[in-house]
Design a protein around this nucleic acid. Sequence first.
RNA 1: GAGGAUGUAGCUCAGCAGGUUAGAGCAUCAGAUUGUGGUUCUGAGGGUCGUGGGUUCGAGCCCCAUCUUCCUCCCCA
Length: 461
Amino acid sequence: MSQQKPSAPRGMRDFGPEEMFRRNYIFSTIRKTFEKYGFLPLETPAMEKLETLTGKYGEEGDRLIFKVLNSGDFLKAAREKGIDLSQYNSLQLVKHISERAMRYDLTVPFARYVVQYHHQLTFPFKRYQIQPVWRADNPQKGRYREFYQCDADVVGSPSLINEVELILILHETLTALDIPGFKIYLNNRKILAGMASVIGASDKLTALTIALDKLDKIGHEKVLEELSNNGFDNNALAALNDLMQAASTQNDVMPFLRSFLQADELGMKGIEEIDFVINTLNSLGFPDDCISVDMTLARGLDYYTGCIMEVKVPDSGYGSIAGGGRYDDLTGIFGMSGLSGVGVSFGADRLYDLMMALNLFPPFAENRYTYFFLNFGSDESLRCMQMIQKLRSHQIKCGIYPDSVKIKKQMEYADKMHVSFVCTIGSDEISNQTIGIKNMQTGEQRTITQSAFFNELGLLS
RNA sequence: GAGGAUGUAGCUCAGCAGGUUAGAGCAUCAGAUUGUGGUUCUGAGGGUCGUGGGUUCGAGCCCCAUCUUCCUCCCCA
């Protein structure tokens, strides 16, 4: 009686038919673009070995990985290996009672896949992958513990043509989804590394990128404060202050970067790469108001090494809806170095929320019955089903109300299902070989012979 | 991982210094109309007030715990 209401776990959601209709609209749009650019589908398991995932996402990331308890009596198994469980805190205990974990993103499992199957892959290997990932993060608006990523990656080709194509994909997909005013931000990890080197803080690259990334959120002062707390000296802070000034005031930051990084070989390489990407896009007629170089863009994932990109709708209140970048040595972690990868990822759930807020989905009505038959009893419904089967064999969506209940109730149902036409075959229609057809939008109703009905549809009766 | 709010009918929300049988709108179901929807009218069902404890003569309201959702930090899609 006073049973607790059932519910899905925190941060995880059910998707009803209407939501699925919209979600599939997003997924199929993304899938269509990926395939158009020559990417092939891939799926990997929901779980990976814990060791495959740990250490790939930084310290914070490790904490957010959902670990799965070993099957069976895992405590007994651990004790039998001579492990004194009372000696460990829960963090240390994990590796003795959990060997598997839920997938945290799609890139690392993909890297694992590439290393495992490299002998049978043809490079450059282009795959796309649309699957859920899980993070033990604190749920908030637009942040879930289970959400979908839609990734496309190219592995085995260092060419910047891939970067260009991925940006084209970002643009083409978001345009197809009608996302208004989205902007692609572009940067290069080599530039960030160059900046760290120029100010003499190469060892603090991660701290620098994390702080810079927050510029548009917390402002100059706070960023400087954070950097200062992280041990950056006054010279470095002054140089970074200039840099942030330039980033927020100049339309084209490239001249500034060129002079800032002129003495740094790696930084200049990064500039070269960005130049190539931007110039190529320009000569392809890419609209330059939807892309801009943002030297404060960092992106959290540690493994990026070259171009990085991120898509946002400015002032929408939503975080980034897509992003990506180049990672030179991801497969190196799995013992296969020298394979360069580059990819993009759409955050389908954020796209969904954004599109809901902006009312960008097509109406949910198309997918129902075209012809819906009312049920007047057993003889009548049998005749209806014969006609229905004929219509279905011509790919026409149709159906019948399964129970012979009040017509008013059946009509209400048809109305709610947004059917286009209601067909009635009662005793009169059976004896006359006719059919009543009602247009549910106009309310217009007519009775014609059944053979005329098939003729109108271009079918033989 | 840290801090702060929230939770009343299927949904959106009322409610009172803690005081008898907890309300509204929408939705649902039934009837007006026993072969016709989206409008109208009438009526009905549905809540041990998130859950578990505690304080009190008495708790939807106060206290504690727990879960959900939301917000900030952290981090991210």
